[in-house]
Each structure stands twice: as structure tokens, then as C-alpha cells.
Simulated assay, not measured.
Amino acid sequence: MSAVLDGADVSERQRAAIAHALTRPSALSSYVDALVDRYTTERERRSGGPSSSNAGRFPRRWTLHLTYLAADPDEAREQAVVYTEGLTILRPELPAGAALLSRADAWNHVEPVFCGQVGPDNKICMDVTGHPGFHRAAGVNGLSWGDGDGPQTSR
């Protein structure tokens, strides 16, 4: 069924409704509970968790899932880079380096969109994952470092 949904030209809302209808409620709720427990904030972990009186006061990390069609993983990555860069232009407070890519039917199998290699002055490489050549920091005149055309050891 996942393969049929993956190839169908339906909205994400319709896709989620179909997936929800085909999932047992107990399985879905346990999956959601596991995700919420997994992504608690650092403040909650240090304090032993939110109390009922201040529940919801601590900021939590949230994920926005965007679904789009692509012919293969390379095209999907190219589109992910374009969408991420566009979104960070509109909302500069969003960390582009945190962007992850997965198939719409396999959200638990994610890989980074950008290299993320840490270089001099704690600059982070914002070239695509698996890129050849030097690592490059964000920006037009971003710092470059590494082995040039040699093999890259990071993904």
C-alpha cells in the first residue's frame, strides 16, 4: 500500500488520512508517544521532565515534512537543497544544516542534506552530502578547507 501511496498524486493531508485509516489506533499512538519521548528538550531532560503545572511552557523541537516527487535520490537531494535554501532565505533563524532527507514512506531512514563537516573556526560545510573537493562554509565568500580534489572521508 505504501508503494501505491508513494506513486499516487495526492496531497500530504490525503496521504496521512489514508495511512491513519489503515493503521491500528494503538500502534499509531505508541509511535507518536515514542517520538514525543525521543525529542524532549535539553531543559526537560535536566529538570526531570515538565510538571503538569508548566506542561507546554518548554519549547520543543518540531519537524515539518514536505513531500514532493522526484525521479531518483539525486534529484530528490537537489530539490531538497533548493527548498532548504529558499526556506532559510525567508526564515533565517532556521538552521539549514539540520535539514534531513528521507523517502515519504520511510521517515525513520533519514540522511543529511548538507555535508556538516566542521572545519577551522568551527565553520560548518554547507555543500551537499558526499560532495567532491573542498569543504565550504555558507555564503558566497565562505571559508574553504580540506583536501581539494582528494577523496572525502565524511558523508
Score class of each variant (00 low, 15 high):
25 P>N: 05
26 S>A: 15
26 S>N: 07
26 S>D: 14
26 S>V: 12
28 L>E: 13
32 V>R: 13
33 D>T: 15
35 L>P: 02
35 L>W: 11
36 V>T: 07
38 R>W: 10
38 R>F: 07
39 Y>H: 09
40 T>P: 00
41 T>V: 04
44 E>I: 07
44 E>M: 02
45 R>L: 02
48 G>Y: 01
49 G>T: 08
50 P>Q: 15
51 S>N: 06
51 S>I: 05
51 S>V: 01
55 A>V: 02
56 G>H: 10
56 G>S: 08
59 P>F: 11
61 R>C: 03
65 H>C: 10
67 T>H: 12
67 T>A: 12
70 A>M: 05
71 A>F: 04
71 A>H: 03
74 D>E: 15
75 E>A: 13
79 Q>Y: 07
80 A>Y: 13
80 A>R: 14
81 V>C: 06
81 V>N: 03
82 V>N: 03
84 T>G: 05
85 E>A: 01
85 E>M: 05
85 E>G: 02
86 G>Q: 09
88 T>C: 14
89 I>M: 09
90 L>W: 05
91 R>K: 00
92 P>K: 07
94 L>T: 14
97 G>F: 03
99 A>V: 08
100 L>W: 01
100 L>Y: 01
101 L>S: 06
104 A>P: 01
105 D>I: 12
106 A>L: 06
108 N>W: 15
108 N>V: 15
110 V>A: 09
110 V>K: 11
111 E>N: 00
111 E>W: 02
115 C>A: 06
117 Q>V: 08
118 V>R: 12
118 V>Y: 08
118 V>K: 15
121 D>K: 13
121 D>N: 15
123 K>G: 04
124 I>K: 09
124 I>R: 13
124 I>N: 06
125 C>S: 11
126 M>F: 12
126 M>D: 06
